[in-house]
Amino acid sequence: MTSRLLTPTELRLDEAMLAELLGIRFKNLGHLTVALTHRSYLHENPSDKPDVVVSNERFEFLGDAILQFVVADMLIKHFPDAPEGQLTALRALMVSTTGLAMVAEGIGLARFVRASRGEGTLDGRGRLRILAGTVEAIVAAVYTDGGMRGARAVIRRLLEPRLAEIALELQSANVKGRLQELVQATNGHTPKYVVVTRDGPVHAERFGVEVRIGDDILGYGEGTGKRAAEQAAARDALASLDR
């Protein structure tokens, strides 16, 4: 994040670089200028023409609403069988402060954000809030500049990779649920997951897990982390039962 007052040439270079990164051609790069300007930057660098440069707060408000709508539409199309409660939880995850900040970090957005010296050196939650707010503001800037089609395109470009990750996570989580439903329908029992091996350093500990019904072993799986190993064991059990 930068805190010093940028020259017009520096502003144009920054904005053009980010617009290219986003795959957006702005009719008016001034909209992007506003989106990148945190209110603390204006407090530290007061302008002689305050109507020319404003903070991104109003764009944050608008961008949040656009994100909520477009992400809801994306989720409906990607998960046609998901219940309303699950869709609501997924949308909250994708447009949360942490979720949007992860998107911002992924494209190196911090280098383009204009904030005060104090805000620019923040880490932790403060940094996440600024980055997430800037993503919202950029969405609003694109919408203001070129309408809903452009806003939808930039949201998809930024968030679809995360959507694919969530789909994989849901698929893995559903494996244990499917196994439990199948086993309970067959004999009324609930599968039990038992750790049988555990090795490796704490930060990358590897587990071996058996899934059992009583003394019968239905499947075995390994993974970095207990959850991953349980999911692998459930997949192995389902594959065995399908044979």
Rank of each mutant, 00 (worst) to 15 (best):
residue 144 T to Y: 07
residue 98 T to K: 12
residue 168 L to D: 14
residue 228 A to T: 12
residue 172 S to Q: 15
residue 50 P to F: 11
residue 225 G to N: 10
residue 225 G to M: 05
residue 40 S to M: 03
residue 21 L to F: 04
residue 66 I to R: 12
residue 171 Q to H: 15
residue 133 G to T: 00
residue 172 S to H: 15
residue 137 A to R: 08
residue 44 E to R: 14
residue 56 N to Q: 03
residue 62 L to G: 06
residue 113 V to R: 00
residue 121 T to G: 15
residue 179 L to E: 05
residue 67 L to E: 08
residue 50 P to A: 14
residue 31 H to N: 15
residue 1 M to C: 14
residue 78 H to A: 14
residue 190 T to N: 07
residue 132 A to M: 01
residue 93 L to V: 04
residue 49 K to W: 10
residue 97 T to P: 01
residue 189 H to W: 02
residue 235 R to D: 07
residue 37 T to K: 02
residue 7 T to I: 11
residue 73 D to I: 02
residue 97 T to D: 07
residue 102 M to A: 11
residue 132 A to P: 03
residue 188 G to M: 03
residue 183 V to S: 07
residue 191 P to Y: 02
residue 16 A to H: 10
residue 53 V to N: 09
residue 73 D to A: 12
residue 26 F to N: 07
residue 193 Y to G: 00
residue 82 A to Y: 09
residue 100 L to S: 00
residue 132 A to F: 00
residue 134 T to Y: 00
residue 120 G to F: 14
residue 88 T to R: 13
residue 124 G to C: 09
residue 19 A to W: 08
residue 43 H to E: 15
residue 80 P to H: 07
residue 90 L to M: 12
residue 30 G to L: 09
residue 232 A to P: 05
residue 10 E to S: 13
residue 155 I to T: 12
residue 149 R to H: 06
residue 125 R to P: 01
residue 128 L to G: 02
residue 34 V to G: 03
residue 227 R to S: 12
residue 123 D to Y: 06
residue 157 R to Y: 09
residue 154 V to A: 10
residue 63 G to A: 04
residue 88 T to H: 10
residue 237 A to V: 02
residue 209 V to M: 09
residue 158 L to E: 08
residue 181 E to W: 05
residue 34 V to N: 02
residue 154 V to N: 09
residue 31 H to A: 09
residue 185 A to C: 06
residue 243 R to E: 08
residue 56 N to E: 00
residue 195 V to T: 14
residue 186 T to V: 09
residue 243 R to T: 04
residue 144 T to C: 13
residue 28 N to R: 15
residue 183 V to G: 06
residue 179 L to G: 12
residue 73 D to F: 05
residue 95 V to P: 02
residue 242 D to K: 06
residue 215 D to Y: 03
residue 19 A to H: 08
residue 2 T to N: 15
residue 204 A to H: 15
residue 74 M to P: 06
residue 27 K to P: 01
residue 96 S to M: 07
residue 20 E to I: 04
residue 117 R to N: 12
residue 136 E to P: 04
residue 55 S to M: 07
